[in-house]
Design a protein around this nucleic acid. Structure first.
Lengths: 161, 161
DNA sequence: ATGTATGCAAACCATTTGCAATGAC
DNA sequence: GTCATTGCAAATGGTTTGCATACAT
């Protein structure tokens, strides 16, 4: 979908949510939503804070956290925690559902798209539970680290002799 | 598997790992491993700390974190972060692989076993990635919260009129 | 004997909170 | 005008770190 169209829709959805919940439509809230949907994919709070400042719209961190809470509630943003004590976020609307490959060595994160897996998971009925979304994290070694560790292990074996 | 047998194996695996990595075999490390495998399923650091104290084996939180790092590295423990800023852990060996259902309203966590889903995910080959384990989190409403929110929504609609 | 692991207390840092000032309605 | 929202600065709380002491090897 064309990004202008996406922007239009998410702004509309956010407005609906704010209205329904009797929240105020502040410029800060819309500025944050629009920055997230302009180009950011995965991001943490610090990079979002800096990006806001860079585009000359200073908001406090408190407002950033408040707004993110709202965006999570209305499913316009997803939150991830990959093992470190740092939360990552990503846009949720028109964002091809993907899974995440996390390297336990260098902590890099790679997106992993797999339509079949997606439909299998989403179509599963679960008793006494009403699902809204899901996260699949696959942990392991990225190719770079797998190679490095192989070499390192060889060296260790040599040292042992 | 009989729990004594499990205890025997995980202690052996831990010993192997410590030896291979030239780490010391301290009583603290074994006490922590054995407590985790005695009865704890999901737990956080604070409850583990208290449980250690209760069984009259005081360890510092620093040691707890150090040891948990080792147990994660040798795949005897799994770590989860379900959205709050609190890490949960669980034993990994002889622990029927299960998924997690997380209620976004009351934050309760339910285990969800599904062998089919498990084998589909595990058997998937991924290019340039060597997987070790995975986590599938399904977010949504537990039955209790789903019921409560339904009632609440009805009341809201009445109030609007 | 050597140097790793422990306990303690302080430091860290992402996130949350309290409160006065602002501004959406 | 009213009260939700903002910014600021302080507080919180899980986790990490530095260092002197203890102890596994």
């Amino acid at each position: 979908m064309d990004n202008d169209k996406v922007l239009e829709i998410v702004n509309q959805k956010f407005t609906e949510y704010l209205t329904e919940n009797k929240c105020r439509k502040t410029p800060e809230r819309y500025a944050i939503l629009n920055l997230i949907y302009s180009d950011h994919r995965h991001f943490d709070m610090d990079s979002l804070y800096k990006a806001m400042t860079e585009q000359n719209f200073r908001v406090s961190r408190a407002t950033l956290y408040n707004t993110m809470q709202l965006l999570l509630e209305c499913n316009l943003v997803l939150k991830h925690q990959f093992g470190q004590n740092l939360s990552f976020y990503e846009r949720a609307y028109n964002n091809d559902m993907h899974h995440h490959l996390i390297c336990t060595n260098c902590h890099s994160i790679r997106e992993y798209k797999n339509a079949e897996l997606k439909s299998i998971i989403q179509n599963r009925k679960i008793k006494n539970f009403t699902p809204s979304h899901y996260s699949l994290y696959v942990f392991g070694f990225c190719s770079t680290c797998a190679r490095r560790l192989k070499v390192k292990n060889k060296q260790l074996k040599v040292n042992k002799v």
